[in-house]
């Protein structure tokens, strides 16, 4: 299962690149870093079903770092919520439903985002609703790391702990880069684990946030914690998958050239093939 899922994550990266090429734009670096997080959630963790996207007992997923939409499109297509060919044909085109951030008129997408620092408070509300009703829903929210400079996140960290929301899990895509450079140079976050733990959360820091087994073990551990929410700091690599774009802040938002496209797809194909 795990080997297949790892191969799937590389395949989904290729779909993501194709979506970006087709639309002529995309936040490629963060798309690549977040891919295993989305893959594990949508293929091993989330109780969601494309045939019944509004099931009141479903788990909720919020993509707070909404600019990783191309990766999210690839995952939603693979999971059966959307059609990949349709997304590629219309992404970012005039009058298209497929815009560059989550839009909840599309099946499978719960909330609109794009502006940063919105997801965690909304996730607190969703988790609180389940708690007050005594329902089993779990709530997952993925934030970026640069995004954590928004103060609203820390309001959410406070209230999530205050309300004892053990059905809430926040995953930070900790790729350490934002548009202007290193997160530690722009507005330092470390010691991030200590900060969030000090807010009363169970914090799990992953050595490799692009490792599906590490991720899945963390999600399982989160389910065993009572009376407080869990934050998984997934230490990822921005642009993961090809040396062309890995760990380069300039690839935050970028469309590969024809040559770069060939090179990136070759690198991704090799990584996928190595697992077969």
């Amino acid at each position: 299962m795990s080997e297949n899922l790892k191969a799937l994550a590389w395949k989904l990266r290729m779909d993501t690149i194709d979506i970006i090429m087709a639309g002529g734009g995309g936040h490629i670096g963060g798309d690549m870093s977040v891919m295993e997080i989305l893959t594990d959630l949508y293929f091993r963790q989330l109780k969601v079903a494309p045939e019944n996207p509004e099931d009141p007992d479903r788990d909720y997923f919020i993509l707070s770092k909404g600019h990783s939409m191309e990766a999210y499109y690839a995952v939603l297509c693979e999971r059966g919520f959307l059609d990949l060919e349709d997304v590629k044909a219309r992404f970012s085109k005039f009058d298209s439903p497929y815009i560059g951030h989550p839009h909840n008129t599309l099946p499978g997408i719960e909330m609109n985002s794009g502006s940063l620092g919105h997801g965690l408070p909304v996730a607190v509300g969703l988790a609180l609703a389940a708690k007050r009703r005594g329902k089993p829903n779990r709530v997952y929210v993925v934030t970026g790391d640069g995004e954590l400079a928004e103060g609203s996140n820390w309001e959410g960290f406070m209230s999530g702990a205050m309300f004892g929301l053990d059905n809430l899990c926040c995953i930070i895509d900790r790729n350490r880069l934002q548009i202007s450079g290193s997160t530690e140079d722009v507005m330092a976050l470390d010691d991030l684990k200590a900060k969030i733990a000090a807010f009363g959360w169970n914090v799990i820091s992953l050595q490799d946030g692009n490792d599906l087994d590490e991720l899945d073990a963390a999600f399982e551990q989160a389910k065993t914690v009572k009376d407080r929410p869990t934050c998984i700091i997934a230490n990822t690599v921005k642009g993961k998958g090809s040396p062309v774009m890995e760990n380069k802040a300039g690839w935050h938002h970028k469309v590969p050239s024809a040559e770069q496209y060939q090179e990136i797809m070759k690198d991704l194909e090799e990584r996928k093939a190595a697992l077969a």
């Binding site: 919105h118 408070p121 909304v122 829903n137």
Partner: peptide, 17 residues
């Protein structure tokens, strides 16, 4: 924390409250 106030309210509403 008014940002949290409105965000949490939106989450509650999304859950049908």
């Amino acid at each position: 924390a008014e940002q949290d106030l409105v965000g949490i309210a939106a989450g509650l509403a999304k859950a049908g409250m």
